[in-house]
Structures are given as C-alpha cells and as structure tokens.
Design a binder for these strands. Sequence first.
RNA 1: GGCGCGAUAGCAAAGCGGUUAUGCCGCGGCCUGCAAAGCCGUUUAGACCAGUUCGACUCUGGUUCGCGCCUCCA
Length: 509
Amino acid sequence: MLKIYNTLAREKQIFTPIVAGKVSMYVCGMTVYDYCHLGHARVMVVFDMVSRWLRTSGYDVTYVRNITDIDDKIIKRANENGETIGQLTQRFIDAMDEDSEKLGVIRPNLEPRATEYVDGMIQMIAALIEKGFAYVASNGDVFYSVNNFEGYGKLSGKSLEDLRAGERVEVDTHKRDPMDFVLWKSVKPNEPSWDSPFGGPNGGKGRPGWHIECSAMSSHHLGERFDIHGGGQDLQFPHHENEIAQSEAAHSHDGKPCQMVNYWMHNGFVRVDDEKMSKSLGNFFTIRTVLEKYDAEVVRFFILRAHYRSPLNYSDQHLDDAKLALTRLYTALRGHDVVDTVIDWQHPQAARFKVAMDDDFNTPEAMAVLFDLANEANKTKSSEAAGLLKNLAGVLGLLQRKSDAFLQGEVIIELTGIQAKGSTGQLTSIVENLVKTTHCAVGALVGQDSAMSGMAARITKENIDELIVTRSEAKKAKNFVESDRIRKELAEAGIILEDSPQGTTWRRA
RNA sequence: GGCGCGAUAGCAAAGCGGUUAUGCCGCGGCCUGCAAAGCCGUUUAGACCAGUUCGACUCUGGUUCGCGCCUCCA
C-alpha cells in the first residue's frame, strides 16, 4: 500500500486515487530562459521516479509537466540577446529535452506551454472576477484578493497576518492588500500581449501572471480536481498556495470551493556547500556542465540515492562516490546474460524493494536492496539474482545499459601537465611521443592552436585489446616485468585490467 | 521577527523502542605470479541536557547549531 508524504497534511498518508486505477499528476516544470541546472535535474528525475513507480504499481498515469515560456525573465533575456521570445524559449526547450533524455527521464505524457493556454487563463481570471475573488486595478492589472479566499495559507502553513508582518517588498499601491498577487499584467512597451476583456487603461491588453498559468494548464488537462501536484520546495509558497487559491475559487460551486489537489509533493533542494543552489546565489551548476565530467547515469544515481525530500549536497566528491557505487552494481551484472522479465514481487528482495518504494518513495532503502542483490549475484554467480537486480534497478531507471557500456564507456584520457607551445610540426612530434609512451591512438586535441595547455588522447578498444594480447603472451612466458609494465601503462591511461580464469577484462577507472 | 525542516560513524545515507542498513574509504584474511574485481571478517555512530520506559539513535520536553520559506526561484 503506497504512502505519500502530503505537504498539505504534513504527514504520510495512504494514497487513494480519485479514480480507481488511475493517477493524474501535475508537476511545475521549467521557465525556459537558460540551461537547466542540477536543481532542475532533481525535479525531473524525482518525479520521473514517482511516475515510474506509480506505473509499476499498476496505475494508469497521466503525467503533466508544464513549460513556462512567457515571463519577465524570458522577455528580458530575449531582449538582451536580440532574439525573439520564441527563438529563445525553443532553444532552451530543446536543451532541456536533451538534458532530461540523458538523465533517463521518460517524457511526461503532456508538456503544455503556457503561451498556448492563454485563453484558458483569461477564462479563469474572468470567473475569479465574477465570483468576487479578483479585481481590476486602476492600472489595468488584475489582482487576486487573498482576503476573500478562506483557506489562504493552508498549504504553506502561513497566516495572512504573519505574512503581512514579514512583508519585505515595497507595496504595490494598486493592490487592495499587500498580499494580493497579480493574475494579469497590463501591457508594457515592447512586451508581448494578448487581448482580454478586463478593460483598464490599455483596453485589457496584457499577459498572464505566473501562478495562473499552472492553474489553467492543470485544470485543462487533469480537471478541476486531480491526485498529485509536485514541484520544488521553494514553490510551496507563494506559487502553490496561489494555485490553490485560484483553482479552488474559480472552480467553486454554490460558493463552496472545490479541492484542487489531494496530495502535494515537494522535493528538497540541491545544495552547494550547504546552501541552496540557485540562480540568484550564482552557485548553480548546469546539467550539461556536470555531464561533461560525469556519466549521466551517475548523476541520476546520485539524485536517487538520497530521499527526495532530503537536501542533497552537490560536490565532486559525492559524484565520485556515486560513480564507484554504481560501478559495483554494474560489475555484479557483468558476465550475466540478463533478460527483461516480469518481476516476481513475491521474491523476498523484491518485496523489500516494494515496501521501501511504497513508503513515500524511499529510494535509498530500495537501493540498499540492489546492493544486497549485487552481493548475492557476486557470491552465487546466480543469473537469477543478477536478473532481479537489473529489473528492479530498471524500475528506478538505472542499470539498463550493457555492463561494459558503462564500465568501459568512452575512453578519453586527459594528459595533464603538458605545456606545449610551438608549430604544428612540433606539436605533432609531441603527440607522436605520447602515442609511443602510452600506446594511445590520439583522436582529439584540445586547443588546436599553437599554444596548447592540454591535450586529450583517445585510446581505442582495439589498442587495449592488442595490449591485452601482448601482455597475456608475456604472462604465459612468465615475463612478469613486461606484463606488469603494460598493466601499469594502461593504468596511467585510466584503464584497469582485471585477470580472471576466463581471461583478462578491462574497465575505465 | 514569523513559520517550517534537520542534526546518524572518516564521507554519503536509511530503517527501527530491544536483533547486520547500504555504498565509498580504512584494517585483516581468502583468491591472484603480483594486482584488480569478488568473497569472508572487522574498526569508526546517533549534537547536547533532561524525562517516559525493563530497555531509546528511535517517543516527549528543552538547549545549541545548521538549513529553508516569508521577493523571482525546481
């Protein structure tokens, strides 16, 4: 029986869907004006894991993750770049898709873009005005009147009184109450706008506020009421609080609000040096930067190794650690010809895995099961254990590559400490020397001008295989000096050899 | 200032009122020509102070420290 920590109730609750067998889930996605950072990666991976587990549990899941493609920052950035808003947002949507695919994230069923739902937003705002929850200010902005919504603050646990006491922004004089928030922004020069019936000095022309976007898109696709709404912890207030106020008021029937969401889920932050990773602090790492150095599956593993509600500290050391741990799992799979089969949930380890996942998606505990299975597979050479390991890991979107694809990977070694300056000819001789001493085939040069500070060489698998053969012959001849020399050279190039009765295998360090 | 979350071994990270978490690192052993991988064993825990209890890392209260939200933010 699945239990979910519901932010609304501040406790774990048994999950009961509105419609038996079906789950409707909405997650606040990205505002696309820049590359996604690791914080975004966490949202994508966490809710991907949630949707996978719901599906594994037999639910028919409709997963919606929106894209905010109109907002202050987008307009500003497009102007700075001298490109259209459409060009900018498409560019970063493409980048986001690339990143998420690498992280093994299955595309949500629907990825609505805000600009395609403006009509729905206008309708919703109109309904709010009509029902007395919103008003048109003298400047043409439309505001939500928080005083008129009784449950305001129920998600974030804040009272209007406390919020006003902590008010830190200068009060917009057009608002009736400092806590009122904008639903419709009256048009400004050089900004995109849509027609609306709200009137005011600009004849109603304007664009939607951020909060109304999610209310409109979620109800459009999932209805007035749906099962799960997710997002980062920082969206709890004001974004999700405002979504509730908007949706429940707009969908009220006979003056009674209609509960929008049954289960609110919030993932913890990614931190750097124990501080929240964010654009404003400037301490963020983009996904693509991290993927230059680390395998995407290592990043996914790193994210899922922590519980989704806990803070997750990012550092190279932690990524290195995750890489070693994942290497152990893939090593256990090596040599087993594993096929995808239906998981036998009666198996003790599978049952343990299920209990963990059903307990508010306890992926760290589920991972512990994977390591126990790895130990069993190593110990008993049992392909059954290896198969269960691979299939259970597959539920988390892990361990689906051939083990050698992970263990050997793309072999690029970086030769550091080389300060080379000179003509192309001189550089070529340096490279040739490197090839001679390291037995590497040079495939790429970093910094191909005459002043190089570094160089990357690529060892091909054929090179390694040849060296392994040479070494085996040396070993057979008991020439251990030669065989150890070869092994040492490869080790310096980042290739680790492993002898076994079946022969010698290799993997990257 | 208001509201909330957290503090577990060298690092990371879970469960659990009494019985091995797990991974990395360390140490000893097996295996190996030697390694690596693997296997076996093993050292390091529960911020602090009280209370409840036969028994607390686990429950309650307090203290200290850290973090987040209260403004855009995943």
